[in-house]
């Protein structure tokens, strides 16, 4: 990642490339984390401001994607713990989801709402593992928790998703 340049060379297109490459993925992850479109957009903007400011100090200890997603998840965490956000009614219904721009299956929506209904600690691990494709080690580094915590939460989150989907499938 030595070709990534920082704020001193802000005209460098690499930052724009990073935004172009990862904005969509960060936005969807923030939406799943925060369950609110406007908050997710704010989180994306804040994430990339931090990325821009931090590019000089990024030395490739992890992949650039891991680094960006770690910033994003911490930004969401901070927003989730702000006093204002805690008082939001966060009951999740499919109607809360934005209109899709491409055709989707009913199962997609069931999975999304099931993820959004997960307790936050399980949700963040599930998002990093399944959506961002992080390894257990990367999740440990990102969240600052132990291996057993990550694997435990992953298992519980996975069980909850399976249970919900299985129940709905059998209902149908």
């Amino acid at each position: 990642m030595s070709n990534v340049k920082g704020p001193d060379e802000a005209q460098n297109p690499n930052f724009e490339e990073l935004v172009a490459q990862y904005q969509g993925s960060v936005l969807r992850m923030c939406f799943l984390y925060l369950c609110d479109k406007t908050l997710a957009e704010d989180a994306v903007q804040e994430t990339f401001v931090k990325v821009y400011r931090g590019l000089n100090s990024f030395h490739g200890q992890s992949s650039i994607k891991t680094w960006i997603m770690k910033i994003a998840i911490h930004t969401c965490y901070d927003m989730n713990h702000s006093g204002w956000f805690r008082h939001f009614d966060r009951r999740i219904t499919p109607e809360m989801l934005p209109e899709a721009a491409v055709p989707f299956e009913e199962r997609d929506e069931e999975l999304i709402t099931a993820v959004m209904r997960l307790p936050i600690k399980l949700r963040e691990v599930i998002l990093l593992f399944y959506y961002q494709g992080f390894s257990i080690q990367e999740i440990m580094d990102s969240l600052g928790v132990s291996q057993s915590t990550v694997t435990g939460r992953l298992k519980r989150g996975r069980d909850k998703l399976r249970g919900l989907l299985e129940r709905r499938d059998s209902d149908a």
Partner: peptide, 30 residues
Amino acid sequence: EREIFQNAVDRRLSGLQENPFLAQRIMNAE
């Protein structure tokens, strides 16, 4: 499982609009 998950999220949340001017705005603001 990851592929199913990623496809489901990308399809169902495809309507979330990216901001095409985000990078430029951040750089200009900074």
